[in-house]
């Protein structure tokens, strides 16, 4: 069974149709990339998967591990194993990164009927996950994302992903705003999380990220539809030709 099954998905925002019939299946262990020009609906797809309010499914369905996602609200989807790495991570003043991580992890554990982690075990776990991502203790003590550099924000996102161990990770433009070194660190963090149990959906405008996170499949999203699907070589092709050819279809 596929982990994620999207069938004929139509999504509207403020009454305007953004996604116009998406079909997409992802199996556990696979990494799929969604590429497309600005305004093609990439971020909409990530939001509708995570259940953000204001994104209305007008037709079609999303099934995740056999469940209809329409039944689940945002935090329930998170507890069920969907993780969104934000393009622009949100600042939460006064809430330390450590507190946030603990609150999130224990909320998910509780929702899944697992015991909450005590302070000692939690701390050990966080340090273990933080180390390879170059996230020092000092950063964990700062308010989440407040005053973080672009690279720090993205590393914090991947740290959350490593800690929460989702079944499906959606990475929305994770490469934006990163220099090459930061990109490598983040990509290494993501690759370390690739395993046969986990699926990933990598949303990006540029092929660059896909040099480091090599996908199993690439889909081109344009005008709210998947207009082409191919292997990792499709990304390189796009790099040369650009999206112009697909824009015409969208019009």
């Amino acid at each position: 069974m596929d982990m994620l099954e999207i069938k004929n998905l139509h999504v509207s925002v403020d009454g305007k149709e953004i996604l116009k019939g998406i079909d997409l299946d992802i199996r556990a262990g696979e990494v799929h990339a969604i590429m497309g020009p600005n305004g093609s609906g990439k971020s909409t797809l990530s939001y509708v998967l995570s259940g953000r309010e204001g994104y209305e499914v007008t037709e079609g369905s999303i099934r995740f591990r056999g469940r209809d996602l329409a039944e689940l609200n945002v935090d329930e989807r998170a507890a069920a194993g969907i993780f969104l790495a934000f393009q622009y991570p949100i600042e939460i003043p006064g809430v330390t990164t450590m507190t946030f991580l603990k609150t999130a992890l224990n909320a998910q554990r509780k929702a899944r009927g697992e015991a909450e982690l005590d302070a000692v075990r939690f701390l050990k776990l966080v340090r273990e996950k933080a180390k390879p991502l170059n996230v020092p203790d000092e950063m964990l003590k700062r308010a989440l994302n407040v005053g973080f550099s672009g690279g720090e924000k993205k590393r914090a996102e991947i740290l959350q992903m490593a800690l929460l161990e989702p079944a499906l990770a959606v990475l929305d433009e994770t490469d934006s705003g990163l220099d090459i070194d930061a990109l490598k660190t983040v990509a290494a963090g993501v690759n370390a999380l690739r395993n046969p149990e986990r699926a990933m959906l990598v949303i990006t405008h540029y092929q660059r990220l896909l040099d480091y996170i090599v996908p199993d499949a690439v889909h081109v999203l344009s005008g709210g539809r998947i207009v082409k699907t191919g292997g990792k070589e499709l990304a390189h092709e796009l790099e040369k030709t650009g999206y112009a050819a697909y824009d015409a279809d969208a019009a």
Binding site: S50, F83, L84, T103, A104, L164
Partner: peptide, 11 residues
Amino acid sequence: QMFYCRQRGIG
């Protein structure tokens, strides 16, 4: 902020 927290599984 609410969406971000809830996406991390916080009610």
